[in-house]
Design a protein around this nucleic acid. Structure first.
Lengths: 339, 339
DNA sequence: TATCTCACCGAAAACGTTTTCGAAAATTAC
DNA sequence: GTAATTTTCGAAAACGTTTTCGGTGAGATA
């Protein structure tokens, strides 16, 4: 338990603490012979530098904070993984916090991370966050911050996103090219930019293919739940029996709609094609399996960390950071729910 | 950026650092008036103690490590959540690491956490871990360690588990009570104790109801995948067309089997009832929905942290820790796949 | 012999906090 | 008015590391 320190090594070897420290770190002004002696003893005593002392001295923790809206979520879980794996390569450990889509939590947690002196923060804004002073303060305090997925244009920092609008356009186009004439869209509360962009992408695709946009074909899922989709699936086909394609802004809701529509005895994809968004795990196991847009969480996590790491280094070197916006490519995953 | 320190407060107030420190921490030997002055100035300067210095001094980080075999997994994601939420209540932050079911990673990560001087470690053993020296070393080094879910009986520390054997017995009994006569079991590689226990629970239930155990009714999924289940579902009914119940050791595999069997035109649950294990999210969205055993990940995470926290306090107070085994209750969730 | 160079090492300050212990000041008791 | 007590404060050590800067001695040069 009482872990070995530089001092002990120095004393047993009859040399100074400074020499031991430098020997261990390979300073050039220490002779090879003492380096050897020190390193051997250190290894045999199983010496490990005290991270507290190191941090106090160097003012860095090799720790980053990751704020996630919701961990139990396939996409976000993938992001965590990407971040952790990438961070490990650079010797960083990751503190994970969950905002639970709450502004209050988000604010508290940023504060916690600031007080812990993490070297940088990765954050995806909660759906309920509408002003950004709390984030701005952290950035202004000199803390490297990178936003991912749910971002705000008004924040001046790097962002890792997918091209939601383009991806949604691709998804809708996919339906059009496979013969869908009347395509409904299930959207969500228009708070996060991602939802807005997917809605716009839907419109873009219609416009490009000369299909007139009908406002009444756009439905809203308030809770982003399976049950919402289940209800909306039915509603859509009651309101518009001739709808032959549905593009949902997220897989879970699409899954609900798909299930209900199948239960109604409507053939998927023959009568109605369905397209989701995100490529959650569950898209592979619905009946029929769900076509969707693959949103590469793992990759996003990796890129987010890489960018953060770059900015941490720059901050240390007193360089000026100029924010970058990195778009991660998505791709259509065709399964059975579209012909 | 240059954050305010005790020293600065002391200087502007013309008092000593010691007094400032004690004033902020409410020591009784500081007059109310100076306490007030200090606290006001501290607040107005937005003072926050430097966590590095605090840690160096107190030898504790208020950080715990959480090693998870796989983050992208409904059950484990829930555990993370439970741990983080509970830890927050006590002022702890959580470093999350993923062993990826690899012994090497597990070992490395324990080392990383040890070097980071976390106050305690929560770990679920990887499936590939067969000897436990690396964990034992950490425990022997005086680090509080609590195992959860995938544990080893040979490690002398607290453990948070479910009663896998009992739960599996309940699940099988559920099938029996609903009229199943010939029940197959899909098991996994018999490495983790959980898998073994579920297998034993299956046998227990058969025995209790006077049904003779038939070895050929036990199948093995090597990869714990949907595809495995899909293949095994068919295999089971080819080998034994009169099987009227299947108990799978995990939901994902059950889902595969369920899908294949439905596609074969066999009625679920009328001809074959299917029971899963874990209550993953996907059990709610299969067709028909999957009956299963609810494995309360969130709760387990909470309990695991609580126990760890207790042991951290005891370690600090030099008390002897006597390991506890905490069993979290499970419950049967009946859905459409059993009648 | 005196000076210079170089390789090697150590003293000491610094990071910011906590806490012990003693001292000074204020209060009370007699 | 002195002694005893209590209140209030501060000096200083400690936690373990990193790094600057100066010092020592040996060898080389003049």
């Amino acid at each position: 338990m009482p872990s070995v320190t530089l001092k002990e090594i120095a004393e047993t070897l009859g040399i100074s603490i400074a020499t031991v420290s430098k020997a261990l770190k390979g300073y050039p002004d220490i002779s090879e012979s003492t380096k050897q002696r020190v390193q051997e003893l250190a290894k045999s005593l199983n010496y490990h530098p005290n991270s507290f002392a190191q941090s106090l001295r160097t003012q860095q923790s090799n720790l980053i904070g990751l704020i996630i809206p919701e961990i139990v979520h396939h996409f976000f879980a993938n992001i965590i993984q990407g971040v952790i794996d990438e961070a490990k390569k650079e010797g960083y450990l990751v503190i994970v916090l969950q905002s639970d889509e709450s502004y209050i939590h988000e604010k508290e947690q940023l504060q916690l991370l600031l007080e812990k002196n993490v070297d940088g923060i990765l954050i995806s804004l909660s759906d309920k966050t509408v002003h950004y002073k709390h984030v701005k303060e952290v950035i202004d305090a000199g803390m490297p911050v990178v936003l991912y997925d749910k971002i705000s244009k008004s924040l001046d920092c790097s962002k890792i996103i997918i091209d939601d609008r383009g991806a949604a356009k691709d998804a809708t186009t996919h339906l059009i090219l496979r013969g869908c004439q009347k395509i409904a869209h299930i959207s969500g509360p228009l708070k996060p930019q991602t939802t807005i962009d997917r809605y716009l992408g839907y419109k873009d695709a219609l416009k490009e293919h000369g299909i007139s946009f009908q406002k009444e074909l756009v439905y809203t899922s308030e809770n982003l739940s399976y049950e919402d989709g289940y209800a909306l699936g039915e509603q859509i086909l009651i309101d518009h029996p001739d709808v032959d394609g549905i593009f949902s802004f997220t897989d879970l809701v699409a899954t609900g709609a798909l299930t209900k529509i199948r239960e109604m005895g409507i053939k998927i994809p023959d009568q109605v094609s369905i397209m989701g968004f995100s490529n959650w795990f569950l898209a592979r196991i619905t009946t029929p399996t769900l076509s969707t847009v693959d949103q590469p969480g793992y990759r996003m996590g990796q890129e987010a960390f890489k960018q953060l790491c770059k900015e941490i280094k720059m901050t240390k070197d007193q360089e000026i950071i100029l924010p970058e916006i990195i778009k991660i490519p998505t791709k259509i995953v065709q399964r059975q729910s579209t012909r």
